[in-house]
Nucleic acid binder design. Sequence first.
DNA 1: ATGACTGGAGTTTCCAGA
Length: 260
Amino acid sequence: MFVVATWNVNSVRMRLEHLKRWLKLRAPDVVCLQETKATDKEFPYSEMEALGYYVAHAGGKGRNGVAILAREPLEDVLVGFPETDDPEARERFLAATVRGVRVHSVYIPNGGSVGSDYFLYKLEFIYRLREYFENHFDPDRDYVALCGDFNVAPEEIDVYDPELLAGQICFHERERTAIKLLQEWGFVDAYRAVHPEERGAYTWWDYQFGAFKANRGMRIDHIWISRALAPKLKDALIDREPRGWERPSDHAPVLAFFEL
DNA sequence: ATGACTGGAGTTTCCAGA
């Protein structure tokens, strides 16, 4: 089995013990991390290598930051969108090839408040992702995985209260339209493919309001795979366990299991 | 009705997160 995971750790330095514990527990082959909140210099390379992982990291000071860990060497590492020189994208978009799969660790901007400049940047970022996949891959031939914190819950069943959250950040119609267009390039949502009807399956819960205990959350972290890769998918799950550990990330990891 | 939590920067308070 070839196991691919994604996890927004909300600071790799604050979460280092959780990350190490979880890597030993689940032993995934590939892990995409987001919100490492670390410069490349601050990233704990040696700790990951000690656990048997090769590492690619692209980060900055204090915010953002994405990484890919893999048990095999990472080939053709790409930082940021290849056709633009958006410095922020260099902390939010990282790609590498592992076992013939082109893996992307992406941290789509949160977007701040609906209608702000930052919200427009979020939409633009999603449209640029669509263009990138259009320009570089064929969804019916290439093994592509898009993993990360998308900051968008695609469907009503992906949020705890669709009426309350309609029009709010991460569930606004414009975000959902953009993310749908990205998916229509040729991606299959791994978790939803395995659990098509399941409600209450979330990957993020607010630190406040006892949200995790009450399971008031949103499914905003995803592993999307190209149609070509989809027949190899055997299982997918959201690992709620580390969200219950002491001083956790506010996100839970998502895992997808393949027979390549 | 409002706030309620966390991490980081950098200063003792603010911003961003979602």
